[in-house]
Amino acid sequence: MPFRISAVLSPAEPVPPAPAALVVDVIRATTTAAYLLDAGARELWLTGSLEGARALAERQGALLAGERGGLPPEGFDLGNSPREVRPERVRGRGVVMTTTNGTRAALRAAEAVPEVALAALVNAGAAVLWAAGRGDGVALVAAGREGRVALDDAYTLGALVTGLRARVPEAELDDGARLAEALFLAQPDARSALAASAAARALEPVGLAADVEVCARADALAVLPVLAERGDGALRFAPVYPKGV
């Protein structure tokens, strides 16, 4: 059976059956997730609600990270900015994260497929290596923005499609994967592509526009957050370093 690449561009689309999924919320949840684990966080828990995140962090003795409206909620240790992540703050600690779009996308993907990882431009190479070894296909799941298609996530899905096709030339693409790939190939400059998105523009009034440049750094990290445990409304991700990155 040929390797099949499916792309879910909108949160309104169902996640198709597949051996594995790569979830993308490039601005900023999956980028920040990669930076947290690369900086030495022991594990990363994702959960959908503020109440659930606070309760889980208390049980685990973990740091709280995330955002609502782009900014950290009251009492959180970290926001959702990759520029905030420092080894001295997170090394050896568990982190519980909740965000507006990305954590919900991960939970949705985990309901549909057995293996899930968090991908962004900063760890695209690691994501491609991992996904190429996951049986006969992968679903690429964009978090989107407020229930709609997001330019930045679609562009990142296109980068993943292009990388996967280089490793699996005979791969079959669905229409969503072809659209994402065409978008990526039409704009070689990742920073410009991401900066044009609504997600990037929304960071300007809260003083976080500089996050976009970090999110656009292709293959800056070799780590991939991979689902290690499903809990009650939460997912635990551990760091994996695919060989060959």
Rank of each mutant, 00 (worst) to 15 (best):
L208E: 05
L121D: 09
A29N: 02
A182K: 12
R167C: 10
T32C: 03
G75K: 01
L221R: 01
D153L: 12
G147F: 11
D174N: 08
R134E: 14
A12W: 11
E115A: 15
Q187C: 13
P72V: 04
M97T: 11
R91N: 12
D189H: 14
R54Q: 08
P242L: 07
V161Q: 02
R93L: 12
T100Y: 03
P169I: 10
F76W: 02
A186H: 12
A124E: 13
E43Q: 11
G125Q: 13
R89S: 14
L173K: 05
A18P: 00
E229A: 08
V141Q: 03
A105S: 04
A33F: 05
P11M: 07
V85G: 00
A127T: 13
A65V: 07
P82S: 05
T103A: 03
M1S: 14
V149G: 05
V141D: 03
E88N: 12
G144H: 07
V161M: 06
G144P: 05
D152L: 11
D175W: 14
L157T: 11
L46I: 10
A171H: 07
E172N: 09
L224H: 08
A209D: 06
V96P: 00
V138A: 03
G233N: 08
A33Q: 03
P242A: 06
A132V: 14
E58G: 02
S10E: 13
M1L: 13
R236A: 09
E111D: 11
E115M: 10
Q187A: 14
L235F: 07
A53V: 08
P242G: 06
E170H: 13
A210D: 15
P19E: 06
L78I: 09
L107P: 01
L64C: 00
V122C: 05
G75H: 02
V96T: 06
A117D: 07
A202F: 11
E74Y: 06
L224A: 09
A18Y: 02
